[in-house]
Structures are given as C-alpha cells and as structure tokens.
Simulated scan of single mutants.
Amino acid sequence: MAPTESSPTVLIVDDETDLTTLYAAWLESEYDVVTATSGAEALATLDGGIDVALLDRRMPETSGDEVLAEIRRRDIGAQVAMLTAVEPDANITEMQFDDYVTKPVERQEVHATVEVLLERRTYDRHSRRFFSLASKKAALESANEHDTDEYDEIVDRMGEIRDEMDDTLETLTAKQAFTQLDAGIGVETDR
C-alpha cells in the first residue's frame, strides 16, 4: 500500500543517517515519512502535520530529549516514541514521551510502535496519559530500575488515573441510566 494524502506522517530523527534511511524504508510504503539527522533539523520540520515522531535521545548539539520538550511546548499533538540505544533510568519519569523503545529494533517493532501510537491518538487525555506512564513503567522494569522512588511514583500516578477513569465511567453510566429511564418514562406518558 502506498501512502496517500491522508496517510499519517511519521518524523524519524536520528543522527545516524543509515538508521533514518532504514527506518524510512520500512515505513514509507504505508506512511508519509520525514527524516532529520539532527535535533536542529527536526525542530525546523516540526509542524501540526506530524502524527508520530520517533526520536533518538543521544544526538550532538540538540538532543532528542530537547526535541521532545519542544514538541510538547509547541503543543504539536504528535505521539512521540523515544527510539534510542540509551537504557532508561529514573530520569525518564518527567519526560513527556508516549513510548520508549530501546535499540536495536526490528522492522516489525518499528511498525508496531507507529501503529500503537496512531491508535493512542484517538484515546482521551486520561487514557493517553495512562499509557504513557505504562510505557515508562515497562521501560524502567526492562532496565531493572523498579526499586526506585521514581518507579513508585509512576505506579501511584497510574493508580490515580485509573481511579479518575473509573469515576468518569461510573458517572457516564449513571447519566446513561437516567437518560434511558427518562426516555422510558416519556414513552409511557405518551401512551
């Protein structure tokens, strides 16, 4: 399948040109792909047309962490995965990425990451935040960093979001029940 005008746009940022070329080749049959080989180049291409960004963390001059911060500051709305050889540690807890993938990666993993991030774009704010935290939790667990205060904080924040989501569902269910009850009463009185 070739990308169309309505195909999602994926930004790939890595200072290793061979990797940006490889990832682009893997994705360009399904997506519009934009590549950048530096953080500065990535910042110059950022606009509201980017749906997913795959960022390397360790780049000279402008890091992927800085590009991520700028994406969030500009409120571009892109889903962002850190696609990097940098093993996660407790300092990732405050980063506002949506997924964390450690290199080396296979074609299927890159495709799956993009697909998951595109699907998450349709989720509400609470669900997106929950999955971002779940990605951080999984990244820390894979790096054996789960006995830290930062890890515990992520688990606590996930619990808080889960509680908020449960409260919202209960409220919506109650409203739906009252709406159906009102509709049923209305039908009865019309007879």
Rank of each mutant, 00 (worst) to 15 (best):
D15S: 03
G159Y: 04
A40I: 13
T189N: 08
R125G: 07
V101P: 05
R129G: 07
L172C: 08
E94A: 13
E106G: 15
T37C: 10
A90P: 07
R57M: 12
T179E: 10
L181W: 11
E141M: 06
R72W: 00
L181R: 15
Y23L: 13
E164R: 12
E70K: 02
G159C: 07
A25L: 13
F178D: 14
G184K: 09
E160T: 11
K175Q: 14
E153P: 03
N91P: 11
T37Y: 01
D75M: 10
P60Q: 01
G64I: 08
R58E: 10
I92V: 03
T93V: 15
D163N: 10
D51I: 04
E160Q: 12
G159T: 04
L133C: 05
D15Y: 01
A69E: 00
A112T: 14
Y151P: 00
G48P: 02
G48F: 10
A53I: 04
D182P: 02
S132M: 04
Y151L: 07
H111K: 10
A25T: 09
T168Y: 12
D149K: 12
P3E: 03
R191M: 14
Y23A: 12
L169K: 13
E70P: 03
T173F: 08
G186I: 02
R58F: 04
T171P: 01
S38P: 03
T37M: 05
E115V: 12
I154K: 00
D89N: 14
E28H: 14
D190M: 12
P104E: 04
E164L: 05
R72E: 00
G39L: 09
I50S: 06
N91Q: 14
V116G: 11
V13C: 02
D15E: 04
Q176M: 11
L133Y: 08
A139N: 09
E115L: 02
L118I: 02
I50N: 03
K137N: 06
A112W: 10
L55N: 06
L68I: 03
T168E: 15
S132A: 09
L172M: 08
D124M: 00
Y31N: 14
R125H: 00
T84G: 13
W26H: 06
A138S: 06
L172H: 06
A36S: 06
E170A: 15
E5Q: 10
E109L: 15
D163H: 09
D14N: 06
A40G: 15
E164A: 12
T179F: 10
G39C: 06
G64Q: 07
T62D: 08
I92F: 07
E28L: 12
L43G: 06
Y100V: 02
N144W: 09
A139Q: 08
K136S: 04
V10G: 00
Q79G: 08
L11D: 01
D18L: 10
P104S: 03
D152G: 09
